[in-house]
Amino acid sequence: MLKHLSRYTFALIGLTILFGSCKKEYESIQSVDAQKIKDYIKANNITAVEDPDKTGFYYQIIPGTGTDTTKYKYTDSVLYNGVVKSLANGSTYLTTSSVANLGTLVGYTEKFTASLTIPAIRTVLTKMKRGDAVRIFLPSYLAFGKNGSGDIPSNENIDLVITTYADKNQTALDERLIQKFITDKGLTGMTRDGSGVYYSVSAAGTRPDSTTNFSTITTTYTGRLIDGTVFDSNTDVSFSLSPGSVIDGWTKTIPGKIGVGGKMRMLIPSALGYKTTGSGTISPNSILDFDIEITARKN
């Protein structure tokens, strides 16, 4: 009996040592992360605030120019984007598109990507107002953890920059960004269609009035995001202009505007493009910039 007891006792002691060492290792990561973040904040003279729940992150709010001084509530809609950088060397690991956003209710903003939850975002947003930005200094165990993700290495402390838009809805944001794009690029002759698409016709072509939603057009086109990224380009490809066959921006804008040989440019708000889902390399809520020429038409 004594012999058996000794074996059980030694096994119990072994397990105690094992779990104790794991706990110490986990606690040491927290301690190391905390010190690195504190050292970074001090070395860069950053005025940062500690997480009110003391889970381990710090944040610095950067006031925006919005006129709304009311702070976000969980039930408010928020439009924002994010940039993930290394705290150690400033490398950018992940960024949302410069014009897309992660729009949702504040209460759901902890879902940063499909596979990453960052509750710190929700916590900090309730300290902010529309148009503000914030830097969140995240210890690795509140970010990508010991496994990392893609180019993000194991146990990497993160400098997460969240920028909110002053606009209260996507329609208003798209309108403002399109108008800014037109001004910044010095575009002339742009007309706002009733649907919200801005367009200019450089060549009307033959019988524009014969181009209808029942037409099938053969086109040469280039599609870009408003940061200049080309996401698609084709020559002599045919499309029906009937609703559901192409994006709504084409269906609502092209008919009656240009005929065969006609050329136009369209700036399409996200609701008439790929909406909140995106498509392939096109991020959700992206504004689209198209150059299009009709080379043939069938009615």
Rank of each mutant, 00 (worst) to 15 (best):
T277N: 12
F10Y: 10
K252I: 09
N45I: 03
T67W: 02
G107R: 11
G131D: 04
Y58G: 03
S154G: 07
A114Q: 03
L12F: 12
Q179F: 00
A143D: 10
V197E: 01
F214T: 15
I61C: 08
T95M: 08
T104E: 13
K298T: 15
I247L: 14
A203E: 14
Y40M: 02
T216K: 13
V84H: 06
F112G: 00
A172S: 13
F137W: 10
D248N: 12
D68W: 06
V246L: 13
L18M: 12
K146C: 02
Y72Q: 03
T183E: 11
S97N: 13
Y80D: 06
S279P: 00
D236G: 15
P52V: 07
L15I: 14
L79I: 15
D132L: 01
K127L: 01
T92Q: 13
F231E: 00
I62W: 03
T70E: 11
K85Y: 03
V161D: 08
T220Y: 02
V134G: 06
K54N: 09
G196Y: 06
K24E: 08
A43P: 01
Y93F: 14
Q170F: 03
F112H: 03
L272A: 08
Y198T: 05
M190K: 00
S86Q: 01
S210R: 13
N299D: 15
D39G: 08
Y80L: 11
I61G: 05
I17R: 04
F57S: 04
L87R: 10
C22G: 04
G131P: 07
S200Q: 14
V246G: 07
V83C: 09
K180Q: 15
W250H: 01
E175R: 09
N147C: 08
R130W: 01
A204V: 02
T109Q: 05
T222N: 13
V260Q: 10
N89Y: 01
G150Q: 11
Q35S: 12
A143H: 11
K42F: 05
D248H: 04
T216I: 14
S140M: 07
N45G: 12
Y141D: 12
K298Y: 14
E110K: 13
T95Q: 10
T96C: 00
P52N: 07
T253A: 13
T222R: 15
Y26W: 13
Y59I: 04
G196K: 08
Y141G: 12
G280P: 05
